[in-house]
């Protein structure tokens, strides 16, 4: 459910699943954990293809941030209104920087 590319040395992970809900969270967590092994500290999560995330999916994103370590930086790109609403309600919009595109997220991260 994930595909990756590197833009200016930042790992960009695109979620190709349309819904990150409780039924998908365990597989999502396993895939994210595999990607962040071996010292990844900066990651952009591209959610342009995602329609909906529930609190289980959000929990995996939080666990991913924790895996990036004390100096870790995880930015969100391309979240639709439903996904942004979840981040706002849970105050996670203060934890993650949220951008319209992966390119903007990478640029902000390197600035």
């Amino acid at each position: 459910m994930l595909s990756t590319e590197t833009i200016n040395d930042v790992l960009v992970v695109q979620v190709t699943e349309r819904r990150l809900d409780a039924s998908k969270a365990p597989a999502f967590k396993t895939e994210v954990a595999a990607l962040t092994e071996g010292g990844v500290h900066r990651l952009v999560l591209d959610l342009r293809k995602v329609d909906f995330i529930d609190s289980s999916g959000l929990g995996v994103i939080v666990s991913c941030l924790k895996r990036l370590g004390p100096s870790g930086n995880l930015a969100i790109a391309g979240a639709n209104s439903a996904v942004r609403r979840l981040f706002t309600l849970t105050r996670m919009d203060r934890v993650f920087s949220i951008h319209d595109t992966p390119e903007a997220a990478v640029e902000n991260m390197l600035a």
Partner: peptide, 27 residues
């Protein structure tokens, strides 16, 4: 409530679960 008044203070304190019931109330 999801958080105390101050909200989570560090990354380690951020919840990975237990948000569902609060979200029902908020939405």
């Amino acid at each position: 409530p999801l958080y105390g008044h101050a909200g989570p203070s560090s990354t380690e304190d951020l919840p990975e679960g237990g948000m569902g019931l609060s979200l029902i109330q908020m939405t």
